[in-house]
């Protein structure tokens, strides 16, 4: 059995094949994976919020898209990944409760997705697959042997992106 590495909310983990990195029950949060198909090294980041500059300073940079991604990138490279080969996939960013007057907080899922894409672009990493939005939770995992990113839901089935 290959190792299963669990990532909690506002955290990230990196590893190498044949491990799988998994994060359970994402709502408006987003799971962003980085993967180098040649060295089979990668990581999974579970962000809660888009932008650290709009929040009170935190001890935990992995909570935000803008500070979490550079951090995970550093660790993935330290494990032997090569930046030019890295590809990103992401899923999550749902809006769990539909309210007529959706505030910014309610829309945080969509803002998370935008922020993650912007940061990845700044870092020069291509997003090759994405499954964001909707009104349902997701459990996501990246298989570091194959690079497949699996998205599980309760009644919208399971898919690989």
């Amino acid at each position: 059995m290959a190792e299963l590495i669990r990532v909690g909310m506002a955290d990230y983990k990196v590893g190498r094949s044949p491990a799988t990195i998994i994060s359970y029950g994402l709502g408006s949060c987003i799971g962003i994976s980085l993967y180098d198909p040649q060295t089979k090294v990668g990581g999974l980041l579970h962000i809660m919020l888009p932008d650290s500059t709009q929040a009170r300073p935190s001890d935990n940079p992995a909570k935000f898209a803008d500070t979490g991604l550079p951090l995970m990138l550093k660790d993935v490279l330290a494990l032997g990944a090569v930046k030019s080969r890295l590809v990103a996939k992401m899923a999550g960013g749902a809006q769990m409760f539909a309210f007529a007057n959706a505030t910014d907080i309610m829309r945080v899922g969509a803002r998370n997705a935008e922020a993650a894409k912007k940061m990845l672009q700044q870092l020069g990493i291509k997003v090759i697959a994405e499954d964001t939005g909707g009104t349902y939770g997701r459990t996501v995992s990246i298989n570091l042997e194959t690079g497949m990113y699996k998205v599980k839901t309760i009644d919208k089935g399971e898919k690989e992106i």
């Binding site: 029950g25 709502g27 919020l49 709009q54 769990m96 945080v108 349902y136």
Partner: peptide
């Protein structure tokens, strides 16, 4: 307020309350 309902994973549903707190602290 008027209530809203969702049936889903506990983590995903709790996200809604936690996100707001997450902006202010850990």
């Amino acid at each position: 307020s008027i209530p809203a309902l969702a049936m889903d994973m506990a983590g995903a549903i709790l996200n809604v309350v936690l996100v707001q707190l997450g902006q202010m602290g850990d």
